[in-house]
Amino acid sequence: MTTLKVNGREHQVDAEADTPLLHVLRDDLKLNAAKYGCGLGQCGSCTVIVDGKAVLSCVVPMVLLEGKQVTTLEGLGTIAEPAPIQRAFMEEQAAQCGYCIPGMMMRAQALLQKNSKPTDEQIRAELEPHLCRCGTHMRILRAVHRAARLMDTADALPAANGSAR
């Protein structure tokens, strides 16, 4: 049994040390947002936040997570009470099939936590590890800009370090 802190809660997880975080999140904790896209660190669909940084959960084994805080999209907000980044993606209708979107949102969230006013160029550079096949890129960029504006409105700050819910 390993202890894993996800979205502010501690979980006892029965997974071997080499199990990638992605499978623990999906299989043991029944969380949906982090997606399996390639398992090779090439597409970004599995991105979550660990200690404030965006990481590819498909290539991060449990052994690296001791004492660290994991935040997934579920930890940011809900349909009823969406976090700014979630509101922004809803308001911009920034999805087609939407499969890649949670990963994009987590990387954007990590960016906005350390840089509340990123330039368009910075957002593009940050999202470089992420693939979208539907071609929703223009909306994704708009949504990240919108999220930056929403976060800027003082109290809108979300559970930055995974303490939501």
Binding site: A17, D18, T19, G39, V59, P61, V63, L64
Partner: peptide, 14 residues
């Protein structure tokens, strides 16, 4: 052992 398990999980798969 720490380095070994990081290697197995993060590197060896590729």
């Amino acid at each position: 052992p720490v380095g070994a398990s990081i290697y197995t999980a993060a590197c060896a798969s590729c």
